[in-house]
């Protein structure tokens, strides 16, 4: 019973954190006047679970050698990670306002050389998983206890380099590597299924020798179970196929490709934030 209660409390806490992250995320994108809200909102629950439960991190010591590594391969969605980093204490929340500004360490896409705590500079879809694989190989060679997590997009599954990396990691049985596929169903110009369908994506990854678990990526209990399970898998890398909704949390953004790469303005911005805050939208 005590364990159940503890788990319930954790789920409730992280669900609340995800809600706060969505608000910080959209606030900074609105302030910046540009960005990619849709794919940040779909990833919010998973990012909350990673940054506030699963990843072993020391915000005050971003280069702590024993930290877990997180690579955001879908680099355009970095604001949701910036939000988590600010909330976790990597830098003051005030800095979120500088997103995309000249001279800001919060670049439009992540830059590891400018912001401590960012593990890899990404933004060209398809490249992040290979970098994560390299980190996992280094960790395995050194017998390190830290693990590598890499979040990809579903449109990104169309890139050939993803499958080169999938083949390599599966072949080598890198069990210190956990991929996360934020399958939010929509890419820049339309539904993934209509642009270049990636399904059956679970079967594809399984055939590359990955342990695959498919979840509802907005259900915190399922997210935690999947992350816990991935850490226990041996002899194979893990992939969590997180079925999500692009733009989750703002009703009129959900599954609409128009909100892939555009910041809401004026009244739209206020309505979006009101919805995320749980206020009656005007």
């Amino acid at each position: 019973m005590a364990v159940d209660t503890e788990r319930e409390a954790l789920i409730e806490r992280l669900t609340g954190t995800a809600r706060e992250l969505r608000i910080l995320d959209l606030e900074m994108i609105i302030e910046a006047g540009s960005g990619h809200p849709g794919g940040t909102l779909s990833a919010a629950d998973m990012i909350a679970a990673l940054y506030f439960h699963t990843l072993r991190l020391r915000p005050e010591e971003p280069r702590w050698p024993d930290r877990d590594r997180f690579v955001l391969s879908k680099g355009h969605c970095i604001p949701i990670v910036y939000a988590a980093m600010a909330m976790g204490g990597f830098f003051p929340k005030e800095e979120l306002k500088s997103l995309r500004d000249l001279g800001s360490p919060l670049q439009g896409h992540p830059d590891r050389t400018r912001l401590p705590g960012i593990e890899a500079s990404t933004g060209s879809l398809g490249q992040g998983l290979s970098v994560a694989v390299g980190m996992a190989v280094a960790g395995a060679l050194d017998g390190a206890a830290w693990r590598v997590y890499c979040m990809m997009g579903d449109g990104e599954q169309q890139a050939g380099q993803i499958w080169e990396a999938a083949m390599f990691a599966g072949r080598r049985g890198l069990d210190n590597l956990c991929g996360i596929l934020d399958a939010n169903q929509v890419q820049q110009t339309g539904k993934v299924a209509e642009r270049l369908d990636i399904e059956p994506v679970v079967a594809k990854w399984r055939s590359f020798n990955w342990h695959v678990r498919e979840i509802d990526g907005h259900d915190m209990a399922q997210i935690l179970d999947a992350l816990d399970e991935a850490a226990l898998v041996t002899g194979r890398p893990s992939l969590i196929v997180s079925r999500t909704v692009k733009g989750k949390g703002v009703s009129w953004m959900e599954l609409d490709p128009a909100w892939h790469g555009k910041a809401p303005e004026g009244e739209m911005a206020e309505r979006a934030l009101a919805e995320l805050r749980g206020e009656r939208s005007g």
């Binding site: 890899a120 970098v131 390299g134 380099q161």
Partner: peptide, 14 residues
């Protein structure tokens, strides 16, 4: 491409 990306990840780990 993957080889170069892996090399990058290895380099970031020293």
């Amino acid at each position: 491409s993957n080889m170069i990306g892996i090399a990058s990840g290895l380099a970031l780990e020293g």
